[in-house]
Structure formats: structure tokens, C-alpha cells
Simulated scan of single mutants.
Amino acid sequence: MTDGMLELDGATISWSVQEGDRPTVVQLHGLSMSRANEAAAAYFDWSPVAAGGRRLVRYDARGHGRSTGRPVPEDYAWPMLAEDLFALLDEVAPGEAVDAIGVSMGVGTLLHAVTSRPERFRRLVLVIPPTAWATRAAQGDAYRQMAGLVETQGYEALVRAMAAFDPLPLLQDGGWTETPPPDLDPAVLPAVFTGAAATDLPRPEAIGAIRQRVLLKPWVGDPGHPVSTSERLHELLPDSTLEVMAAPEDVRALGARVAAFLA
């Protein structure tokens, strides 16, 4: 495993590479998560991807985990995060077209990236795509409320509020009952959520121009990641496969399914 830090405008990006002898795949986490948080939550296991000999790149988005950021909401809009992704790829996989796995916010980042510079990508895996277009406004309101809570009552107030919500039934049924707290610097957390509230997926016509093979893996019962987003993406994307995760065993099989798709 190789670790590194990438200095960007207003941020330092923490990344890691598990070396392999096959082409690179990059994995992007969701809002308020990180590499460490994904490991703590334990429902997404990417080890089968690396086990197949792939060169697996993972990183913490700006403001998340071990990466740093500044309290500027525009820095956390998905097109800006896509520019961070390009900078990282220029550092760890220069000139290479990579496969990519995006989770939630990572889906938004990845779709903005591939519609901007499609030559940098081969195949895409979109895991639990978030609210988009018609469903985005209500989610944006929720993010702004979270930002306001931290600004007025502090980070711990948000942690308590999030802990009061029951886990998704799908995760609870699978034994994943602990929800890790946000892995964000409290000083930038309001800006991260405000930036997320003000951003959306690319326009449908831009998504319809994507020519990469795409695997869509939504799960059920999550208003923040409605299956309807994946269904609409499936309609728009010319070469996509839609597979809904409806049971805990579907979530457990995700890593192996992604590895097979990218093989």
C-alpha cells in the first residue's frame, strides 16, 4: 500500500494506492464519509476489486477524512470535486483511462468528471446514486438545515441528531446497526453541506452522451438515495445495467459484483 498527499488550491488530498498488475480503478466515497468511515461502517467492501489484481486508488475528498479544505461552499460542488479527481489521476495514473466506482456524492463527482473529460474513463460503477433533478431541492433543504445546526449549536448537536435516526431497514436487517459520525472537519462542515445543497447531477442530455459501460447499484428504502435516480440514469445511459440491492446479501455481494463487472 502506498500513501500520499496531493496539494491543491485550498485543499490537501489524502490518497492511497493498493498496487496491482492490472489497470487502475479509482473509488470515490459519499458525503460526510471517508476511507476510514467506510471501513467502520463495513457494508461496502472493495477488497474483491483489489483481490483481482487491480490497482485500486482510494482517497478522501476535500474536507473529508484525512484531507483538508477551506470553509468555501463552492469548493464542495460536484464539478469542483471532479477537478480534484482529475488532479489526483494526473498524479497517480497519468495518461491512463481508468475504471471508477462512485458512491453517493462520488456518483455526482464522477458523472461531472466523465461528461467533462470522457477520455479519462473506461467503465463506471454508480453505487447508491443520490437525489437528483426533481428530488434534489428537498435534499438541499435538509443539507442546509444540517449546516445551520452546526453553525448555531456545534458539531456534536449534528452527531446527536444523526444518531437519533434508525439505520436503513436494509442495513439493520444485515446487522449494520452502527452509523459512523460524519468524518468532516467541523470548521468546514457547514460549507461542505451548503456546497452539496447547491449542486446537482449534470443535465440529462449530457448524461445521455456518456458512452462508457455503466453498472448502476442502488439500494431500497433510502430517501436520500432513491431508486428513481438510478432508474432515470438507466433510461439516459446508452450502455447501462441496473441492479437493485434489495436484501442484505445483495450489499454483501457488491464488491464481488463490481470486480466481475470490471474484469
Results as ranks from 00 to 15, higher is better:
residue 193 F to P: 00
residue 161 A to C: 08
residue 118 P to K: 08
residue 177 T to E: 03
residue 200 D to S: 10
residue 223 P to Q: 06
residue 145 Q to P: 03
residue 106 G to H: 01
residue 195 G to C: 06
residue 145 Q to T: 00
residue 217 K to H: 09
residue 142 A to D: 13
residue 185 D to Q: 06
residue 128 I to M: 12
residue 192 V to F: 11
residue 192 V to S: 13
residue 208 G to R: 00
residue 141 D to F: 10
residue 199 T to S: 14
residue 216 L to F: 07
residue 126 L to Q: 00
residue 198 A to T: 10
residue 192 V to P: 14
residue 116 S to E: 14
residue 123 R to K: 14
residue 212 Q to T: 07
residue 123 R to D: 14
residue 206 A to W: 01
residue 119 E to W: 00
residue 106 G to V: 00
residue 111 L to C: 14
residue 224 G to D: 02
residue 136 R to L: 05
residue 218 P to L: 05
residue 113 A to V: 14
residue 161 A to P: 03
residue 137 A to M: 09
residue 127 V to C: 11
residue 111 L to V: 12
residue 220 V to R: 11
residue 180 P to S: 07
residue 170 L to I: 14
residue 167 P to F: 02
residue 164 A to Q: 11
residue 176 W to I: 11
residue 194 T to N: 10
residue 230 S to H: 03
residue 146 M to A: 12
residue 195 G to D: 01
residue 163 A to N: 07
residue 172 Q to C: 08
residue 176 W to R: 09
residue 160 R to V: 04
residue 195 G to V: 03
residue 172 Q to W: 03
residue 125 V to F: 06
residue 158 L to Q: 11
residue 182 P to Q: 09
residue 106 G to Y: 05
residue 232 R to Y: 07
residue 129 P to M: 06
residue 211 R to N: 13
residue 194 T to M: 08
residue 229 T to S: 09
residue 170 L to F: 10
residue 198 A to P: 06
residue 203 R to K: 15
residue 236 L to N: 01
residue 148 G to R: 05
residue 222 D to G: 06
residue 207 I to P: 09
residue 218 P to E: 06
residue 127 V to E: 09
residue 177 T to Q: 05
residue 155 Y to R: 14
residue 150 V to P: 11
residue 221 G to A: 04
residue 107 V to K: 10
residue 138 A to V: 13
residue 223 P to G: 07
residue 134 A to T: 15
residue 195 G to E: 03
residue 120 R to W: 06
residue 206 A to T: 07
residue 238 P to Q: 08
residue 227 V to C: 01
residue 159 V to L: 13
residue 122 R to L: 09
residue 145 Q to F: 02
residue 149 L to F: 06
residue 211 R to I: 10
residue 173 D to H: 11
residue 237 L to M: 09
residue 143 Y to C: 09
residue 150 V to H: 10
residue 151 E to L: 14
residue 166 D to R: 12
residue 110 L to R: 08
residue 145 Q to I: 04
residue 136 R to I: 05
residue 164 A to S: 13
residue 120 R to M: 07
residue 227 V to P: 04
residue 191 A to E: 02
residue 194 T to L: 10
residue 200 D to N: 12
residue 119 E to R: 10
residue 235 E to W: 00
residue 150 V to A: 11
residue 205 E to V: 07
residue 186 P to I: 12
residue 136 R to Q: 12
residue 148 G to M: 07
residue 231 E to A: 00
residue 168 L to S: 15
residue 186 P to N: 08
residue 106 G to K: 04
residue 143 Y to P: 02
residue 158 L to G: 13
residue 118 P to G: 12
residue 179 T to A: 14
residue 174 G to F: 03
